[in-house]
Every structure is written in structure tokens, then in C-alpha cells.
Design a binder for these strands. Structure first.
Lengths: 346, 346
DNA sequence: CTGAAAGCGCTAACAA
DNA sequence: TTGTTAGCGCTTTCAG
């Protein structure tokens, strides 16, 4: 076919199964099967169909197929924040695992706004993804996800957990993570240990705070609410938090930060106060994002294996899509302490 | 309606316009219009329809609507790497702008692999997004995007540009950015300035290298190929590159890095050699990711306004979706030098 | 091995 | 203001 020929592109100017079928004088059913390489179609027919499809620049229309099959092969990902490298790196793991399984990611973000989350999840669900991977905004309740379970959409929660919602969950054992951090600091001889960042309206915040308190008391130290600075885990929180606790009459000599971002902020705030982690103060982060190893000083932190978390979540979801009646599963990834240069003996 | 009633969920167990229409004894057309709040439908009817829809947990089916309207309200984003905060932050800007305009993001990533890019873009296009925002893998050619233009999919390139492909582009004036960096270093008295990172198979790499060389020569310095270390812009590249040039018989006293990630690596490598940027060496980065201001030393860098880039790209794309015949546009965002602590007089 | 026909859930023309 | 009708592009029985 030369460039001069007018290609019959159908009413809408598009190449569809219909136009291929007509040109080849076969049925659309045959074309459909041939393009999917069905064993039921004669080899010769298949080649003819496939060749013509390529020639005409046929593009499979997944909307149409989805309408028919009630499958979209899309996985919706709702994250509060992908600006945090922890979640960006997790998202990459999800995306890659999904892509390997022939799924594409539909993405929505909503910060810590429940209202935006509601809107975003509502929209995502209208695209009829085969399933969703969610990390809810702070304060989200079982109720706020009820519309998803009602619609019987397979959902796996990642990192942050809403309990009693009967959904799969993949996350870190955050209580244990806090224990590791505090044990390390206690071992170094610290007795006044602050906790910076983390909110109670989030499972990660709540669990890490609980682990912090448990560990403090387990080691025979006194829990002092003044040493606790709560806010969402941002660099800004770390910066403000460390300065706050350092201004105390009886300041801490170490701090456990809710996440690495907060720790980075704290490292900075420390320096502004003329102190330096690893010299006259100790900071432990949580997450172990790539950046952590490269800070100065390199950050001692609790590794949550977020890439694995992303991968496992995608795998779990795909399993659940195939077997919707599986009982809810809860995958807790074991955190590990990574000791680097930001902690020293008291 | 009590919980005991069996809700007619249609053949597939789903609530569709059909089932609402039947229950209310109106036509699906009316239901469709009512749900979209058409002024043509009587208020009373609208309320009845909307109330029942809510009660039954009706979920709009965008696949079905798309099939009919040939519009999906999805924007596909193909990025090589969202692990780089530069692109993650850009993606957030794209996502937010798109969401404000009622569009949802379909995401694909492919690293620097042309083969993966081909596969990913192919898949994305089958979902029939209304448009695409792309940052191609290194070495991508006009040819490798030809299938998109052939399918008449509105595309805007972001950050990296493939020329002669006739597509919209939003990016930074990379040549100018390099000029700013070099001018700053020359002003500080540096005469041996390295360039670390960046590949010629990428417009950003190529332009920054060109700008580097032009600026070097414009200031009467000698261009020395030994001072140039080429590789993709990663932390690893920075780490390796700085060590390489420092080992030279006549080492540089300053380096311009392809991007901030590379600069972070270089800062690290420098320290491993017992040197410190801002004291006995100067490093200029490029991008100004959030992390840059918080490094130690804080990174002097060329700000590319990547958030604005993301926003503009989304805006441009939405315009083009509405007016496909617009001539290709090229938006160059003016870079600015942000002087911080990683540079000092020679 | 191939074709005919129906239908997924929605919207848009047109008619009433 | 509402209903009728057709059809978007695909897959899937069921016949042949």
C-alpha cells in the first residue's frame, strides 16, 4: 500500500477490528482472536491479520475491551505524598512489579487532606481499576474507605494501616523499628532521648510513638512528654522539632526521628544550634531512603525495606484480584537498624 | 429501602444507568443527563435520580463513557526515572495540575532503556489517554516517537527534548544554565573547571555540555577533555567522576555537575578524598531539588524551576488536547543561579 | 477454523 | 422536559 492510498480509518478516522476485518474479508471475531494469537485461528490467517494490523497502525482499544471484559488491567495507586523519596521509591517498585504483570498504574495523590483523598479515590474508582494500592492521608478511617469495599474493589494498604477495615496490608513493624532505634541509643548511653515527628492519626506515627515509649520505659528511663514533638514527618518538622527540644531546660542528647525526612531536618536544625550529630548529639532516622547513606553525617536509621514493600503490595494485590475471597492478609516486613555516623556515645 | 431488599444490580451485579432508570421508570438518557447535572432535566427528576444513585452506590463507568465519547480524561506520563527527586517533584506538579483540570495520571517508567520505553509507551497508548507528557530515555529519536504522532496523540515533551519531532516542549534553557554556573565559577577565580555527568544522547546532557564548553572558551579558558566525565546523572556518577578528575596530574579546583544528584555524589567523593566543597573546592549542581538547600554544604546550583515545568507542561497539553492544530510550541524556562555554600574563591 | 449476533455501559441525535 | 435509538470497539457464546 503506497502513501498515496487513502486508508479507510472508519467513521472516527480510527483503525478498528472492523476495518481490518473488512479489508481481509473475515469477521471481527477472527481478527480479535488472531491479534491475541489464539491457537484456534489458522496460522495463515493470523499472519495476514497481524501484518495488516501493523501496516494500518492498528491500536488496541483497552477501553472497549474493558467494557466487555470488566477488566482494565489498571492498578490505581493512591499515595498521600510522592515528594517524599520513601514513597517515590516505593512507587517505582509498585510500578515495575505491576508492569511485569502487564498492569499499568493510575496515579492519584492527596497530601494529608481527607477531602482531597475522598475526591481522588472517587475518581480513581470510576476508571474501574482492577485493584488499588493505598497509603491513606492522616486521620483516614475505615469509614473513609468503606465505599471501596462496598464496590468490592480489591485494595491493599501500604505502609499506613487502617485497622478493622478488613483489607490486605503490607508495611513495616513500626513498633519494632522504634524499639531497635531506642535500644541502640540506650546502648550508647543516652538517657534523655527525644522523639521528633509523627502524628497519632497515622498508624506509622502511632506505632512508632508507642514503640518509642515502650522502649524508653523498658530500659528503665522516664518517659517525658516534653521530649516528644509531634507533627507530620517533613524536613520542616525535623528542623523545628530539634530546636524546640534543644531549648528545653534539660535537653536531650539524642533523638529518634519519625522518618528520614524529619531526621534530615533535625540534622540541619542541630547544626544551626552549633551542634553536630555524631559528635555531640545522636540522631536516628527511620525509612532508609537512598539519601540517608549520603548525608553528612551519614544517617543511622531504621531500614523499612520500602522497595520490597512496594513489590509485595503489588504481588498481593494481583493475587487478590485473581482470588477475591482470600482472607485479608497482613504482611509485616521486619525492620533493621542501619548504624552509620549520626549516632555516638553520650 | 431496607437492607433486606435485594438490590437489582443488573446482570453483572453492578449498578448501571439502566438499573437506576428502571427503578425510577425513566430512560437511561435522562439518568445520564441528570447525573451530569444537565440544565435540561427538571430539578425534581434530577434530585430523584441523584438520590437513588447515591443510595444504590452507583459508580460512573469511565470506560463506557470513553468508548462513546472518545475521551478518557487520562493523561499518560512517561518518565524515565521518578527516583530522581527532580522528576518526582515534577510529576507531583503535573499530577496536581492535571487533577485540577479533572484529569487523572496514567504512569509509566522505563529507566534509560529504549526497549522498555517502547513497550511502556505502546501500552500507555492503548489506554487512549487524551494526551501524553514524556521525558524520553537517553538515545530516543524522533523515529521512536513516530508511532505517537502517527496516532495523532497530543504529546508534550518535558525536560528532555527530541528535536525535529514537531512536538510541544517545556524545559529549561540548559545551555544558559551551564553559562550561569561557569560564569559564577570563573568569577570566583577558578580556571580548571571540570564537568561531571550528563550524556550526549540526551538534550539536557548535550546542551549543558555545550554550554559548559562555550562558557569555558568565552572566558578565555582552555577546554580540556580530561576534565569532562560523562555518564548518566546519578549519585554514583558524581562519586566516580569527582575521584577521576581529582586524580589527574593537574586537577581542577571546581566542578559543574550535570544535575543535583551528580553533585551530591561529587560532594561525597570529594570528602572521601579529604576535600570539602566550599572550603578547598567548588561544586555547582543543576536542578535545585529540595534536597539541595539542605546538604552540607548547602549546594550552589542552577535552579530549573521543575515544578513550574511540570505545571506548564500539563497546561500546554490540556490546551493542545482542546486545539490539536496549534503549531508546536517550545517553552523555555529561564534558569537562575542559586548561590549557596558549596562554592568558594579559588 | 470461521462467522453471526449480542451486549458491556454510556452518550448524543433526534423525536415527541 | 423526556424517550427512542443507535452505536462507540471489543469479546464471547453459539452455530456452522
Amino acid at each position: 500500500m503506497s502513501m498515496g492510498d487513502v486508508i479507510d480509518r472508519g467513521e472516527r478516522g480510527r483503525v478498528t477490528l472492523q476495518v481490518i476485518a473488512e479489508k481481509l474479508d473475515v469477521s471481527t471475531a477472527t481478527v480479535s482472536l488472531a491479534l491475541r494469537d489464539s491457537p484456534v485461528v489458522a496460522e495463515a490467517t493470523k499472519s495476514r491479520v497481524q501484518a495488516l494490523a501493523r501496516e494500518l497502525g492498528y491500536i488496541y482499544n483497552r477501553s472497549a475491551a474493558s467494557l466487555r471484559t470488566a477488566r482494565t488491567n489498571m492498578i490505581a495507586v493512591g499515595f498521600h505524598d510522592i515528594t517524599n523519596p520513601y514513597f517515590a521509591e516505593m512507587l517505582v517498585a509498585v510500578e515495575e512489579t505491576a508492569a511485569e504483570a502487564g498492569r499499568t498504574i493510575l496515579l492519584g495523590t492527596y497530601g494529608e487532606s481527607l477531602e482531597r483523598q475522598e475526591r481522588v479515590l472517587g475518581t480513581l474508582k470510576e476508571y474501574r481499576p482492577d485493584g488499588m494500592i493505598l497509603c491513606p492521608a492522616g486521620g483516614a478511617t475505615a469509614e473513609s474507605l468503606a465505599h471501596l469495599t462496598a464496590a468490592r474493589i480489591p485494595v491493599v494498604q501500604i505502609s499506613r494501616e487502617i485497622e478493622g477495615v478488613g483489607l490486605d496490608f503490607v508495611g513495616s513493624d513500626d513498633v519494632q523499628g522504634a524499639h531497635l532505634a531506642i535500644a541502640h541509643l540506650v546502648e550508647l548511653g543516652h538517657t534523655r532521648i527525644a522523639m521528633i515527628g509523627g502524628m497519632e492519626d497515622t498508624s506509622t506515627g502511632w506505632c512508632r510513638h508507642r514503640g518509642y515509649r515502650e522502649a524508653i520505659e523498658k530500659h528503665g528511663l522516664r518517659f517525658d512528654p516534653d521530649l516528644v514533638y509531634m507533627d507530620y514527618g517533613t524536613r520542616q518538622t525535623g528542623l523545628a522539632g530539634i530546636q524546640k527540644v534543644l531549648a528545653l531546660p534539660d535537653p536531650p542528647t539524642a533523638a529518634f526521628c519519625f522518618n528520614d525526612l524529619t531526621a534530615f531536618g533535625a540534622l540541619l536544625g542541630l547544626r544551626r544550634c552549633g551542634r553536630e550529630a555524631g559528635l555531640d548529639f545522636s540522631i536516628v532516622g527511620c525509612d532508609d531512603v537512598q539519601e540517608a547513606a549520603q548525608w553528612y553525617p551519614a544517617l543511622t536509621t531504621v531500614r523499612n525495606n520500602h522497595a520490597e514493600m512496594g513489590r509485595r503490595a503489588a504481588e498481593l494485590l494481583i493475587e487478590r484480584i485473581e482470588r477475591p475471597d482470600l482472607p485479608p492478609r497482613r504482611v509485616l516486613i521486619r525492620p533493621e537498624l542501619i548504624v552509620r555516623a549520626s549516632t555516638v556515645a553520650a
